[in-house]
Simulated scan of single mutants.
Amino acid sequence: MNIDFANLTKAFKEHEEEFKRVSLEVMSSAHYILGKETEEFEKGLAEFTGNTYALGCSSGTDALLLAMMAMGLKPGDEVITTPFTFIATAETIACLGARPVFVDIDEETYNIDVGKIEQAITKHTKAIMPVSLYGQMSDMDEINGIAEKYGLAVIEDAAQSFGATYNGKRSCNVSTFGCTSFFPAKPLGCFGDGGAIFASNEEDYQKIKAMRVHGQVKRYTHHYIGMGGRLDNLQAAILNVKLKTYEKDIERRQKVAESYSKKIDDKIIKPFVKEDRTSVWAQYTIRVQERDRIQQELQKHGIPTAVHYPIPMHLQKCFDYLGYKKGDFPISEKCAEEVMSLPMNPYLENTEVEYITSKLNTLL
């Protein structure tokens, strides 16, 4: 048996005729950037999350950049975040000349350890950027409380958690800014690059709306330094189709995760989701010893795996200038050596889950 890790082909086949119809409409209209499809998608995003302000943009990475640009982040400022994440989280902070300040993670959820945030705050701190890793949101009430105490912004890096809930509220509707990605392999993915940014007030919304079009408030009138960060209409049209059935996809992902958790041997450290929240299972990530051996053996049986992420940010060469060293964030370092993601998508069948888990359990 050969297992498909993300099953993007099945995702296409499920709505193939609708995808073809809306794509042809966009191409026939010759209106490729922004437009009615994007406006419809932004309205759908706001309704889905419960947030008032939503803007489509060119990627999850650009969403993070736009959020920090809108809050006026400048060289010398600091943003507190986690070292156990994808490069875009810290990279975008550095791109604006600010300094990523890392805080270790909670070993159960892999999200930022809120108990360690306050000790990292300095007079230069301007924001906290929690990452909703693997599909589960961070401890947002505590984070927002710390931010309010010190007058900081909160930017949720929700690239992996769109659709997740925290105390009944959706990801991207719990902080100053919410930023997500629609990269094809994400739980809600388009057919290229795409992202969205959510703002909690109209002033930020209007500023970001201008900044994603080079700071332009009307044609050739620029009030801000911005960027080319627009979502193209074709991707918006695709996402409009997928958003209509996204709740169903989330439910199917949750059933796959439940099945994994029941069938995987308890010797393996399985994902932990706190009672006050839900995960959209961007990844189903376990922790194992002898990871390389297990990955190789599973691959022999047609079972692909992935490691998200093998090198924490503070040990990446590009961040040498920050002065961190091995041992500074021991939980992140330990998890980076042990995490392994199994195939996860809404289309995994029970027989496939049974096959994957039975092979995995024999390798312990």
Rank of each mutant, 00 (worst) to 15 (best):
I3S: 03
I3L: 05
L8Y: 09
K10S: 10
E14W: 07
E17N: 10
E17G: 11
F19G: 01
K20A: 15
V22N: 03
E25C: 03
A30P: 03
H31I: 09
T38R: 00
E40S: 14
T49Y: 06
N51V: 08
T52C: 08
L55K: 01
G56W: 12
M68T: 04
A70W: 03
M71V: 06
L73W: 00
L73S: 09
G76R: 00
V79C: 00
V79M: 00
I80L: 04
T81K: 00
T85K: 04
I87L: 13
I87W: 02
G97I: 01
V103S: 10
D104F: 06
D106H: 15
E108T: 08
E108S: 11
Q119R: 14
I121Q: 06
T122N: 08
H124A: 12
A127Y: 04
I128R: 04
M129R: 00
M129D: 13
P130R: 02
L133R: 12
M137A: 04
E156A: 04
E156D: 12
D157G: 03
A159F: 10
G163I: 00
T165A: 00
G168K: 07
N173S: 09
N173E: 02
V174N: 04
S175F: 05
F182H: 06
L188H: 08
F191Q: 15
D193I: 10
N201P: 07
Y205E: 12
V213K: 13
H222K: 12
Y224N: 04
L231W: 04
Q235E: 14
A236G: 02
N240H: 09
K242H: 09
K242D: 09
K244C: 07
T245Q: 08
E247Q: 09
K248V: 09
K248W: 06
D249T: 15
I250E: 15
Q254V: 03
K255N: 14
A257S: 01
K262W: 10
K262L: 12
I269Y: 07
K274G: 05
E275A: 14
Q283H: 14
D292Y: 05
D292T: 13
T305H: 04
V307P: 11
H314G: 08
H314N: 09
L315T: 02
D320S: 13
Y321P: 05
K334D: 14
C335E: 14
E338G: 02
S341Q: 08
S341R: 00
P346T: 11
V353Q: 05
E354D: 15
K359T: 03
T362R: 11
